[in-house]
Design a protein around this nucleic acid. Sequence first.
DNA 1: TAATTTGCTTTAATCGTTTAAAGTATATAC
DNA 2: GTATATACTTTAAACGATTAAAGCAAATTA
Lengths: 337, 337
Amino acid sequence: MKKVLLKDIARHVGVSTALVSYVLNGQAEEKQVSKENAARILAAAEELNYRPNQIAKSLKTQKTHTIGLIVADINYRFSSGITSAIEAEAKKKNFTVIFGCSNESAEKFDELVTVLVNRQVDGLIMVPTENSEPAIHRLQRSEIPFVLVDRNFPNLLANSILIDNYKAAYDSTSYLIKQGHTRIAFINYQTTMFHLNERKRGYIDALSDNGIEPVEQLIKLIKSTSFKPDVDKAINYLVGHEHKCDAIFFATDRLAITGLQEINRQKVKVPEDVSVFSFDEAEAFDLFYCPISHARQPLEKMGKLAVNALLDLIHKNKIINQIYLESDFVYGKSCRE
Amino acid sequence: MKKVLLKDIARHVGVSTALVSYVLNGQAEEKQVSKENAARILAAAEELNYRPNQIAKSLKTQKTHTIGLIVADINYRFSSGITSAIEAEAKKKNFTVIFGCSNESAEKFDELVTVLVNRQVDGLIMVPTENSEPAIHRLQRSEIPFVLVDRNFPNLLANSILIDNYKAAYDSTSYLIKQGHTRIAFINYQTTMFHLNERKRGYIDALSDNGIEPVEQLIKLIKSTSFKPDVDKAINYLVGHEHKCDAIFFATDRLAITGLQEINRQKVKVPEDVSVFSFDEAEAFDLFYCPISHARQPLEKMGKLAVNALLDLIHKNKIINQIYLESDFVYGKSCRE
DNA sequence: TAATTTGCTTTAATCGTTTAAAGTATATAC
DNA sequence: GTATATACTTTAAACGATTAAAGCAAATTA
């Protein structure tokens, strides 16, 4: 079945391609196309089942109506959540999404940016990885609009949709303190990433502000390169008798899930033996024998905002800068009363 | 910063655009470009930081090096798993992925197919939804290559990467029988979708082949439109004293997760009061107080195969037809010994 | 010496649209 | 009766690449 082109419609109706283009792009009025021709063109387009070639259109108009999306790992609940929201919102606005995963590698991130830029995406939504500042700097010089989601770099001014990680961690820690905990451990990644260090800062400040001296031994930093053993070791240390803590605050869902597995293995009971609080949300949290209390990020909202911010940049060059959203809290039964 | 075009390189070096194109596309030898010009062109491309416009390239070559991917819902573990594998494999083969979610709606599925076809994707990988046969039929007539993943329609011959759902369900049920269960319940969606009904068929045949009469009251079909209440009702019925079953086989992870929540709420103990087995894998299964035994689909492999099958179709028009993969089994502690 | 081959380069059409600018016929104004 | 406005329509040049086909010296052959 041969592809139907604009020119086939033109020939079929007996007019020029210009008229067809005007009519099919809704400029019939404006370009004063006769009602008769307009009607015949629409009919012919329908009859021949014309589908415009977006590539040709894009080449001419310099607009692809495409958003490039780079997430860290689509298997993260965070990523699938915002991806889903972004795709839905983009579709609503007649944009399509080209998709890539960096797998937390700055190199892969860089490659993806290049690929997407070469594809002439109208703009990018990205969850940057550690060490991806150079790629983002380069992007800034190219004048292609983009917005960062979830993570940013303090000394790189870019439009971003963020969580107030400091506040969420501060509030989470304060909650644990109010529940009567004093030896609150914190498990985080060993990382230079700002958003995770903000969580740490929130944790520490909450302790200090409540008259609790932060204890170094209760802060465990996990290397992603030795993730599982590090988490296991941290848990063993923290629930071991000598250093026993009374609560563990996990900085991410992945840390929590892996940590909880080891907690189970050690036959430590939540919340009787130790309370647990986590960032992010995970299905697994609800199925744990005592639902895990956690700080939930508004994924839907973030995705939607990211798309709209990007479209603002694309269309009107409106600058949004940082938007900070608040997490909300889901109280399970994992923190001792 | 002005975009650098092929013609800028040509001007810079003092040759025609044809030479530049030949050299940058690795046809220097073939087209007998002088070593000197070839070197100068490469140097200039580097120096000017030339990035070819893929849109223009695509228009001319009629190849976009793009794969359209349609999944049901990216928040499903199944979807994110194959998406991740597909993206990685596509990238390896220098293809990019345009992404869409149907949200299990045939209408949205149809729209997505149209959008992706208009974007001139070289091929499509799709997880079809219920009632999406017409859209797929239409696609077949358009001669754009595609492969279906996970789900297919028995009377629609298309290239597909599938699981042997019948066998997996048959084997799962047989396992439960061997563990001594006789009143095995089955919770599935009420659906016309073949792959889910195959799971039911496997369940029923396994019972029959082992001399157990399938009991209608133990087969619960869940309407997606009233998902949660239906699952809750089913669980209540199944663990209620009069109809007590000794095992529940969930046809999907989502059914299992929702079902297990209700099981918890009813204070029913797994596996003491009832054994549980599920299709698919979920993080939550490992965190449940007794890890849930399940049949795991080889997501990585499916995604990779799907991309390679599609590329075979695109490049050589090699026909693959159905490929059936086997699930493997993860034995937790959720089935009474 | 003329014809042919070799080695390299350029010309220009093309992909399928969009869209200024120019064209044409009819109606209105002066 | 000529100029101008009105209501349409067409022409043709883009967009940025690819790629047959043609062009042109210099070297080789006859």
